[in-house]
Amino acid sequence: MVIPDLQLTIQADLTTAIVGESGSGKSTLLQLINGLVVPDTGSVLIDGVLLDYANLTRVRRQMGYAVQGAGLFPHMTIYDNVTLMARLESWSSDRIEQRYQYLFDLLDLDQDFADRFPNSLSGGQQQRVSLCRAMMLNPPLLLLDEPFSALDPITRRGIHEEFTRLQAAESRTIVLVTHDIAEAAKLAQQLVILKEGNIVQQGTLQMVAANPADEYVANLMRLQGVSS
């Protein structure tokens, strides 16, 4: 996906949803932030500092990442999946255990999962585990690429609640990519509406709903039944 010309500032400590149809460039935009996509021109700044492409692994450990389909490593147990990076960061086992327990409780996951493999969990459970993995190192920034899109509506509603709890428990900057504006309205404070690689509109839900920038945005809000 080509994003020709774009300027976007993500506000710290808030959840920003990037909303758009498939092909609008929203995933590409997200992957620019953690360096999975390198821009031909232009730059990415984190806290005012240029993204350090020579030290991407260090940069990425400061950014949790969760995707549609969860992407858990099938050969590792749930415990190993969640705690892998903490072990590589040489955390003490006490600290790892504590953080793991805390996240598992927060996301309402069963303690028995620890020694099981991902294939024995449901899609919703896997996605919760993948959020745990993303949060394990307590990163200041969380990047979520349509993590809830493949789930059935009931499961999604449940995981939305846990996500809200998670936002309340630890304040951090979250970028959530979704095609579902209702989800964005529910989980995010800031909206960025993307169409064919361009930002059509950005602002709070109230601002966007009250003043849709064009017919496209207005339709989007109406179709998804979002109202201020």
């Binding site: 999975l36 990425r60 450990r61 990442y65 995707v67 992407g71 892998l84 993995r133």
Partner: peptide
């Protein structure tokens, strides 16, 4: 997807091989 995740969560290329790709 697993390759992308292994990269995105901050595994070095060598760690990706050792912990994800080779297993």
């Amino acid at each position: 997807l697993l390759k992308r995740v292994a990269d995105a969560i901050g595994l070095t290329p060598r760690q990706q091989l050792r912990y994800v790709l080779l297993p």
